[in-house]
Design a protein around this nucleic acid. Sequence first.
RNA 1: GGCAGGGUAGCUCAGGUGGUUAGAGCACGGCACUCAUAAUGCCGGGGUCGUGGGUUCGAGUCCCACCCCUGCUACCA
Length: 504
Amino acid sequence: MPKFYLTTAIDYSNGDPHLGHALEKVGADAIARYRRLRGDDVTFLMGMDEHSQAVVEAAEQNGYSPEAWVERMALRFAEFWERLQCSHDDWIRTTEPRHRQAVTELIQRIERLNPDDLYTGEYEGLYCVGCEEFKQPAQIVDGRCIEHPTLELVPTKERNHFFRLSRYRDALLGRIRSGELAVEPAIRRNEILRLLEDGLQDISVSRQRLSWGIPFPGDPEQTVYVWFDALINYLSATGYPAEGYQRLWPADLHVVGKGITRFHCVIWPAMLLAAGLALPRKVWAHGYVQWEGAKMSKTTGTAVTLGEAIDRHGPDALRYFLLREVGFEADGNFSWERFDERYTADLADGLGNLASRALAMLSKYRDGVVPAGGEPTSLDGAGAATLEQYGEAMDALDLRGGAEAAWGLVANANLYIQQTAPWKLAKEAREEELDASLAALARVLYRLAVLVSPFIPGKAQALWEALGVGGSAASASWTSLAAPPVEGVSIRKPEPLFPKPASV
RNA sequence: GGCAGGGUAGCUCAGGUGGUUAGAGCACGGCACUCAUAAUGCCGGGGUCGUGGGUUCGAGUCCCACCCCUGCUACCA
């Protein structure tokens, strides 16, 4: 059983989770669930990034100590991920001892293996008060920050520890070009390659005067810069440096937002190279959720809370909408109108109604017992084709394509019902044909329950239980999809899977 | 400012290397059916393919200019 270790970005403890966070977690969760279906030994990691100045400020503003604040935020995030049925196997927080230990050890390991890679220096640069960060030449036009052209840049000096990132340009370029470190989708890969081609500068990896962080090894005056700290969480969760961490490391997939690809595709792999550790196999950078066509800002981001979006049609529906309509590659749009349309068309009238009509006919014409099927039908042929298309899309992390494939089978099933017209067969007592049709429908429901389970795990399970095959949709074997073992099982007519309120 | 990607039906998008009446899904209109959450199936209306030039027998599909949008532009989760 091959291991599959995947991670999401850990979330910053300075605000509530919103739709953007949710897209990433739900997307990674769908991938984790799909890998489990395919038989991988999956370890799925999520967590919280709890250090940095911004967290201290958020805590102060809300009248909490940093410790109490991050504790509160972690519970809040975890609660949402639970509602959205995220199936993570581990939950890491950067304030945990296991993480502090891994960070300390990793830095010491770099000092040991490549003593030249870490050095102290004066960081001297132009600081933009608007951005609260040092600006680089490329971001300065006419002596001013591009983002804040009305503000003067302030020359600032600070003693820091530096990481010799510049040394790793060629190594990174080679590994990304060769695909040894896969960066996807292609647009992100191109961006990173261009960045590398332009050359790298060393980066400062510590901060003075900030006590809320991990002490820099050998220099208690400084703490580890939040990014250098945060990235290491993926390694901390494997148990590093304790023996056995190689069972999980290297990670098979880091799922991150497109805004932080550079950290994951340049800084993080360079850190690992310096420490002589294996690089992650793949980084996937998803796009952002836009709200009614506009970028989600702090103001519009709070216009729709994650809680509201979940309450609208339930967690499964939100997961489906994010992955099918918003998408996991480019930016996508979220609007109530589209959400309602998708809910009605794909979930209620599509999958939900298909389940209702098929189960109702099994119940009505065969007392709820799935008859022997006989020969595979055209619907089984469509099922096999769907399986292939679905697997291909999901393997490529094309979640939208996977959902399209599964829902295409819903359409095939509805068409099959129309064509075979079981009610007509029943009236004319054409028993064998009726058996064949109803058995084919039971098989398609079995296939669908499994295929949609990465997207809508809760409803997939409800459908599974209505079918009465036992066990769970999530743990069904992939090979059983070729010939679903439904003959003779007793189905149970469920409540509508996706009820349609009069208002929608 | 630099670099990259994009602007195709009301909405979301397909349309390698130019070639018959420009496609899909959703939404909309009509018909059929009744097993189903008035659901489903069939048919149909609907597009000057961002703008202006050019190459060509022929261009969403190639070239030039322009307009608009998005992303990246190193310490922003």
